[in-house]
Amino acid sequence: MVGSPVSSTRFWELYPPTSADDRAWVVVFRFGTVGQLRAWLDSPDRRRLLDEGRDHVTGFDVRKVGSAFSGWFRFGEAGGREAQAPPNWKQAMMVLLALYPTVMVLSLTVSKALTDGGVPEFLVFFVGNILSVATLTWFLMPLVNRVFAFWLVPGVARTRRRQAAGAALVIACYAFSLLVFGLTGWLTAD
């Protein structure tokens, strides 16, 4: 596990080895766009720095982290490489679309049953989180990705009409969820 950086700027952080047995230093670079990352990876400056450090480095690897939710947004391979993930704002909209009904259904069913059964609240929340993550990972996010592929999949024509239609459909789904759970709450109120 990586600890606190010994040196950092807005764009990079340097982490020392985490134990006496570990000799690996970790450097984290941040890029604003995938294009900026690719430009750096292919740059003469990077090649020069790697050449200068060969006598001091026994090995290295490069790992790219696309976004916070990239594991839920995989759309196959593009030219032998994993396709880009949708923009973060679309990913966040999709996660909310799947997460809100999941949490509401679990709250109205499993969490209520566990709480009524005397299970401590901290365990109820833990079980709820396990069920939410499992439901999202193996059922709802793949379903949402298929339904909204016209709007999410990178490389699909990005017309203003398609962008507006996707966003409007997501907002309509939010409204429907709020209506359904609003009525459910009203019907189940004591």
Rank of each mutant, 00 (worst) to 15 (best):
A92V: 15
R160D: 07
L49E: 00
F29N: 04
A68M: 15
L49P: 00
V105M: 05
A85M: 15
D61Q: 12
P101I: 05
A83N: 12
G185L: 03
R10P: 01
Q91D: 13
W12P: 00
M1I: 11
G76Y: 08
I130Q: 09
F125W: 15
L37T: 06
P16E: 01
W25M: 00
T115R: 12
E121Y: 14
P87N: 12
V180E: 04
G3H: 02
T135D: 06
K90G: 13
F181W: 06
R146I: 13
A149R: 09
G79V: 14
S70R: 14
V6E: 04
R48M: 01
G76K: 08
F148I: 05
A168R: 14
R54M: 00
F139A: 15
A113Y: 07
L97Q: 05
V119K: 01
T9G: 02
A167I: 09
G71C: 08
V105Q: 09
F11D: 09
L179V: 09
F11R: 13
G155D: 11
A167M: 11
S19G: 08
R30L: 02
T109V: 07
G117M: 01
V170M: 06
F29Y: 05
F122G: 15
V180Y: 05
A39W: 02
Q91H: 12
F60P: 02
S67H: 13
P16M: 04
A85T: 15
D42I: 03
Y174Q: 02
L50W: 00
A164G: 11
D116P: 15
V110F: 09
D190Y: 07
V170L: 03
K112P: 10
E13N: 04
D22P: 08
V156E: 13
F181R: 04
W12A: 03
R46F: 00
R30H: 07
Q36F: 07
L178K: 07
F148H: 05
P87F: 12
G3F: 03
R63A: 13
R161H: 08
N145M: 11
P120Y: 09
A168Y: 06
F73G: 09
W12K: 01
T188L: 03
L136S: 06
A98Y: 03
T137F: 12
A134S: 12
I130D: 02
N145K: 06
R38F: 05
D116L: 11
G117S: 03
P16Y: 00
L14M: 03
G71N: 14
L41F: 08
G71W: 12
L49C: 03
N145P: 04
G155V: 11
L178Q: 04
K64I: 14
V95C: 10
V28K: 03
G79P: 15
G32A: 10
G53T: 01
